[in-house]
Simulated scan of single mutants.
Amino acid sequence: MHASNLLCHEFVVAVSFVACILGLGLLWNCPDTKHDDQQETEIILFRMSFTYWLVYCVAFGLEKMVFHNYEPLIMTLKITTALSYFLTFSCILSLPLHKFAVHRVEE
Rank of each mutant, 00 (worst) to 15 (best):
S16K: 09
E63A: 03
Y52K: 07
C20R: 03
T41N: 15
Y70G: 05
C57R: 02
F17Y: 06
F50H: 03
V12D: 12
S16G: 06
K78S: 05
M75P: 04
M1F: 01
Y52N: 06
I44E: 07
M75K: 12
S49E: 02
F86R: 10
F11V: 05
C20W: 05
M48H: 09
I79D: 11
H35F: 03
T80F: 04
V15I: 10
N5L: 13
C8D: 10
I43D: 06
A3H: 08
M75D: 08
M65P: 02
V15N: 10
H2V: 04
Y52P: 00
L54V: 10
L26P: 01
W28H: 15
W53V: 01
W53L: 04
Y52T: 08
G25V: 08
L7R: 14
L7N: 07
L54G: 15
C20M: 03
F89R: 03
V13I: 06
L73T: 12
L24M: 13
L7M: 14
A59V: 03
T88H: 01
L26T: 10
L87M: 03
W53K: 01
L45M: 03
V13M: 09
F11G: 01
G25Y: 05
L73C: 13
G25A: 10
E10V: 02
R47G: 12
L6Y: 03
F46W: 12
